[in-house]
Amino acid sequence: MSGITGLLAQSQQGDASAWGAIIERLYGDMRRLAHNARKLNINEAPDTTALVHECYLRMHQHGASGIQSRAHFFNVAASAMRQLLINHARDRVARKRGGGNVEYATLSECDNAADQQATDLLELDDIMRSALAGDERLIRVVELKVFAGLTDTEIAEAFDMSVRTAQRLWQEARDKLRAALTDQADTDQEPARLRQ
């Protein structure tokens, strides 16, 4: 294993085969992670942590030389998950724009919800890139929290910091995102206000 971090870096630079290699490595565990998540009720937070742990242990046992520590693995898995979901959201949005009549096809009602989430996620991702730019720690915290489903305690562990610091970083990231979204929403509403 040439190092999953390297593959991740390659794929971030647009190397599709690197992405494939990552997925191949994380595939089974990510599927289970997602399968577990989707079984949950909407009001319940998914217990993905256990799976992520297990996933790490498995990779570790297989001599995954690229993974240096559990914390490192959390970071890798969260990044991979983020990228996977963003890629998928892009595909969905593009396909939807492409249109197509699917009368009588067995379509999931979930499709509508997924399309909606795709649009929202892409927007959130844009905001993340601009609002959190330059602060790698904030980006990591959001990834671990949102894309890997880790708790504050586990994030603290992953970063080797106190739980309070982890909570503070998460709060800071969220405030920045909220502020950025509010700015954007205000700009969106400008034309309407002018018309009044």
Partner: peptide
């Protein structure tokens, strides 16, 4: 859309959601 974007930050909202399901 702002509210929905922020909602994605809630624990489990994204991983338990339809998009993740469809991605998988």
């Amino acid at each position: 859309s702002k509210v929905r974007c922020l909602a994605l930050l809630e624990p489990g909202a994204l991983l338990g959601g339809a998009l993740c399901h469809s991605a998988m």
